[in-house]
């Protein structure tokens, strides 16, 4: 039975911990008292479910919103209105938000609702002044499971996209790529002007963390705003599903630590069906901003590898190696 998946997201201020820097950021929190996290809380649903997200903002003095790239027919409402399709917002004839936004000090909340029609990983992010707000941290992930994902008798059991899509896996890792411009964060958080032409990030993150923090476990106590690690530990022969999503503004190339992987999905569209298998193998994949690429790596031998940005100027923290967009893949026999 399709379910209604409800999620509350509060826009809050927080402090990112990056190696050698503390950086103010804006993030989504599951409650007004919980810390905001980067990426935002993962919304999990089953294909066919309706996702209903309530967005609230009591901290930021700016309008905020949510947009859902890859979803169709998204509806929205506020306390005093009915559901209606989302639409851009204009001021003086010029678009100021890609979708309906919540103004500070007005309504208590704004809701968005849509049917999660097909499995996959998707971004949600602020659609309001995204050049600032997405960089400040207002992005998160939606994972939509195929029907029967948790039922061992189902052909879709533990697959990313269902039977015959070649997406069965033993280990799953969400890897959300991004970049952080600390000067921009400091200015925006202080309410100062920032010229977006000066955007020049110097930290490179996976799930909001830079190496070596990527190697720390999930929910590490020292990283309250960055709960997700990205290190992978596997045994030979296990199928590791790497769900790479680029939430940054730049394109990123990720190498699979020297191993080949099979690309099984792009932009949440599986590449194989019962009729046609268009999957292919790569040692590195390039993701444009907003794109996702899903790769299954099945190591045949033990080894200690580093998944990493192949732009080697992005495996540093500012200028020092090792750091940045890099995480460990440890394969044992």
């Amino acid at each position: 039975m399709p379910a209604l998946v409800r999620k509350d997201l509060w826009v809050r201020r927080g402090l990112l911990k990056l190696p050698g820097a503390q950086v103010p950021f804006w993030g989504f929190a599951p409650s007004p008292s919980a810390p905001p996290v980067l990426p935002g809380p993962v919304i999990t649903a089953t294909a066919g479910d309706v996702i209903l997200v309530t967005l609230r903002n009591t901290e930021l003095p700016v309008p905020v919103s949510l947009m859902f790239p890859g979803q169709t027919q998204v509806l929205t409402r506020r306390p005093a209105t009915r559901w209606k399709p989302v639409s851009p917002r204009y001021e003086a004839g010029r678009m100021v938000s890609l979708t309906d936004a919540l103004d500070p000090g007005t309504d208590d909340w704004i809701r968005y609702q849509f049917r999660a029609g097909k499995p996959g990983v998707y971004l949600y992010q602020s659609g309001t002044n995204p050049g600032v707000q997405v960089q400040m941290g207002l992005y998160g992930l939606i994972v939509v499971r195929p029907l029967g994902f948790e039922r061992p008798s189902s052909p879709n059991y533990r697959t990313a996209y269902g039977a015959r899509t070649g997406t069965g896996f033993d280990i799953e890792k969400l890897l959300v790529l991004g970049e952080v411009d600390t000067a921009m964060h400091a200015r925006v958080a202080a309410g100062a002007e920032f010229n977006i032409l000066d955007f020049a990030p110097e930290y490179w993150v996976i799930n909001g963390r830079s190496y070596p923090d990527t190697d720390r476990p999930d929910y590490d106590a020292t990283l309250p705003h960055q709960p997700l690690g990205s290190a992978v530990a596997a045994k030979t022969g296990q199928r590791i599903l790497l769900r790479l999503v680029n939430a940054g503004f730049l394109n990123h190339t990720v190498t699979l630590g020297g191993l080949h992987g099979r690309v099984v999905a792009e932009d949440a569209f599986p590449l194989a069906s019962s009729e046609l298998d268009t999957t292919y193998e790569k040692t590195a994949v390039t993701l444009g901003a907003g794109q996702s690429v899903e790769v299954i790596v099945t190591p045949g031998h033990p080894g200690e590898h580093y998944l990493r940005a192949r732009d080697y100027l992005r495996i540093v923290n500012v200028s020092s190696f090792p750091g940045g967009m890099m995480t460990r893949l440890l394969v044992t026999a």
Binding site: H260, R262, A272, L276, D277, T278, T279, Y280, E281, K282, T283, A284
Partner: peptide, 9 residues
């Protein structure tokens, strides 16, 4: 990347 572009297809 050192693979023929011919997995299934």
């Amino acid at each position: 990347d050192g693979r023929l572009l011919r997995g299934g297809t």
